[in-house]
Amino acid sequence: MPGLPLAVSGLRLAFAGADVIDLPGLAVAPGTLTVLSGASGSGKSTLLYLLSGLLRPDAGTIAWADTDIAKLGESQRDRWRRKQAGFIFQNFHLIEEMSPVDNVLVPIWLDSFSAAAKRQHAVNLLRQLDVPTERESVAKLSRGQQQRVAIARALIGDPSVIFADEPTASLDAATGETVAAVLQRLAREDGRTVVVATHDPALKTLADQTVQLDHGRRERTP
């Protein structure tokens, strides 16, 4: 599925009366890797949650192609994420009691009763990412393999947009580079829109665009 363009304008979110995000504008092209960066508490994860529809802004627009998710209700935003987005987390957040294949199929169960039609696709994705598929539990995989299962889970629905929250933070340098390369490939080769919140310099070097945040405001755009 081709990536979606993102156009953000006048984005504001406040907690307890203070702005935590104040972003006048941001444009992201399909097929690019955009990194949201900044120190801890800079607002990069909050911005990621806004862009993915997990949080709703107090003001502004978050237009993914023709859909302004800032105007959608909660269930519509859930549906948008189900159909258009994949999510990767720092700590993978896999379900330990499930096999790698079943973990990859979780997004399918969110929408369909049976995931049988997608099972082979899940196996193929795991093989492409060099993850053993026969394990009974993902707990028996290495951390790098677990993160690749999480990437496969993000890809099972063939999303246009990939969100990643500190995807390399809990990996060693070598594994982190591998994951970063995968994310870059998802953008450049598959044409998806990849938005990553990270402070990993390796990822920044691969980014097509970096949004540097400080206290919720954009610092600079290299």
Binding site: R79, R81, L110
Partner: peptide, 16 residues
């Protein structure tokens, strides 16, 4: 709760 939050992030509806 983190598991359920992750499911929400993946697109699970509150009903799910």
């Amino acid at each position: 709760r983190q598991r359920f939050a992750v499911l929400r992030a993946l697109g699970a509806s509150p009903l799910f």
